[in-house]
Structures are given as C-alpha cells and as structure tokens.
C-alpha cells in the first residue's frame, strides 16, 4: 500500500484554500467524469483518484488528519487513535451512486486505512440509482457468427443467455439490459456490455460483409476455359471460366459473402481471385510443344 499524495492528484500546493480545491476538483472532474468518457478505463481510474482526493481535502477534518498523519499513516500512534475515532464519523461528500458511482471498494487501500471507508452519505434518505454498467469480452469464431445463435454465458456469477446476431464485427459491443451491477437502494440494475473478439477460423478473409478467397486455376483451363468448383462459406459452387483468363482475375459472387449485421437474409459478396498455376517438371514432349507454341506467337 503506497502513500497517496492527494494534493498532487489535484495539482495543488499544500497551502491550497478550500476555493482552490473546489476549483481544481471541478476542473478535473469535468475532464475525467465517466459520463463524458464512456468505456475509458484510464479516465475512470483518474476520476476515482480525484474523487478520493476531493473527499479528503474538501473536508476540513479529514484534511487536517491527512496533513498531520498522512505520510506516517503506517506507524503513527496518534494516527491509530485518530483512525479509531474516525470510523463512526466518516462523511462522504463526493459523487454518490449511479453508473459512475462509487462503492467502498472504489477507494484506495490508503484511504480505507486512514479514513475507514466511505460509509455514510451527506444525502438525506436513500437515493435510488441504476447499478454499475459492467463490461466483458467474448471470443467468437468467424464460423460461429455466420448464423444468428444463442449462447449461455456465466458472468459475474450469473448465467446470461444472449443472442449473437449473425455478422457482428470484431470489436463490436452489444448491450444486455439489466445484467450489470445491482441497482443502488432498489434502483434498476446496470447494463452489461459485451465486446466481441472475432477470430478467423476459416480460409476466407473478411472485410465487413464481403469475403475474399484465392483459388488455383490450372494453366490449360485459364487458357482454354472450362469449369471450376469453388468453396463458399456455405457450400460449393461451380464457376464457368472464360477462355484466356489472366492471373489474378477477380470474380464477384453476389450474395455469397458474409451476412449483413441485423439485415436478415442479406449477404455480402464473395470475391474469388484466380491464381494461375504454371506447370512444373515439364516432359521433353511438353517442352517441345511449348516451344512450338512460342514460335507461333
């Protein structure tokens, strides 16, 4: 457990007046408030730190104790006495509750040791607030999200059944209403945000709703034309190859790509690139025939 310099946290000198503290706190709170920095863990951490600093420095009694015993909090006999007296008098003047709210665990170990937690509130009567929003990551295979499917997850000790829509993006987040932290004083539960990490377990490359694949095409089919069977995400298709098809030719198979998110029954395209394979280990006869062809050109 480290000593926490609350003055430094708020960017203040130890001689700061109450007005200075309030001003510095307000300024930093506006910058780091979780409502203004959604999903920003760094801002959330910083906000908790400044809230804790304000909790101590804006309360003359706590500030005095902090100034007197703060640095020696681990050994001071007087500090121990002060701490015992303190436990029944702690007052919380910072932000209370809400999605950005604080519980005792949101205060540092240093604060808990010195001031005995954040029990008590300056508010009269219990104010109901929505519980804390929670975040979770879920890894999915690309092949799993080709179709809308259901999964049962165990998160924070509760079983949650979720529907994962086909075509979700890597990094996309969905909100599960009411599955976050428990509401405060009977308020509604917070929400659960699940972020998808999509792992490509297929040979296809995905760009949004379009899929890309590369197939080998033998020289003779490329030159003379013919047919080729190609794997798509949901089966095989037979393609007609035009005579004199060049290497790296791309064909677009409409509707054979990936499902479009939240557009039931709609799919992107599959783009197939032909890679013409040059025959190797030619026989003498083949070499002769190719030379004959060369002379014709």
């Amino acid at each position: 457990m480290d000593f926490v310099d609350y003055y430094k946290t708020l960017g203040l000198e130890r001689t700061a007046t109450e007005k200075d503290i309030k001003k510095a706190y307000r300024k930093l709170a506006r910058k780091y408030h979780p409502d203004l920095n959604p999903n920003n863990k760094d801002a959330e951490k910083k906000f908790k730190e400044i809230n804790e600093a304000n909790e101590v420095l804006s309360d003359p009694e706590k500030r005095e104790k902090y100034d007197k015993y703060g640095k020696d909090w681990m050994h001071g006999e007087e500090f121990e006495k002060a701490r015992q007296q303190q436990s029944s008098r702690s007052q919380h003047q910072g932000f209370s509750g809400g999605a950005s709210g604080f519980s005792e665990s949101d205060f540092s170990d240093f604060f808990e040791s010195m001031f005995g937690g954040a029990r008590g509130s300056s508010r009269q009567g219990p104010v109901q607030f929505k519980g804390k929003d929670l975040n979770a990551d879920l890894e999915l295979n690309l092949s799993d999200i080709y179709k809308t499917h259901r999964q049962i997850l165990t998160l924070h000790g509760q079983k949650i059944r979720i529907t994962i829509p086909a075509g979700v993006e890597h990094g996309q987040e969905i909100k599960i209403k009411g599955k976050g932290g428990k509401g405060i004083n009977g308020g509604p539960n917070g929400d659960l945000y699940i972020k998808f990490n999509v792992v490509n377990d297929t040979s296809f490359k995905r760009d949004g709703e379009n899929l890309y694949t590369t197939v080998d095409l033998d020289l003779y089919t490329a030159l003379l034309g013919g047919t080729l069977t190609v794997d798509t995400f949901d089966g095989k298709v037979k393609l007609n190859i035009k005579p004199e098809t060049a290497n790296d030719t791309k064909v677009r198979l409409r509707g054979k790509g990936f499902p479009i998110y939240k557009k039931e029954g709609q799919f992107g395209d599959l783009i197939v690139t032909y890679k013409v394979k040059i025959p190797t280990q030619l026989s003498e006869k083949e070499k002769e025939l190719f030379k004959a062809l060369q002379k014709l050109r």
């Binding site: 307000r26 709170a29 408030h33 409502d35 932000f95 809400g98 950005s100």
Partner: peptide, 19 residues
C-alpha cells in the same frame, strides 16, 4: 420510458455533479 432511465441519470449527474 424505462429505457431512457440510463440517459436521464446521466443528465442528472452532469447537472448535479458537474454543474
């Protein structure tokens, strides 16, 4: 609507906590 409670709380906090 119940769905807008989250937003309403955010508005209350912005007003109350950040003036």
């Amino acid at each position: 609507h119940e769905e807008t409670i989250g937003d309403l709380e955010k508005m209350i906090r912005l007003n109350r906590e950040l003036n």
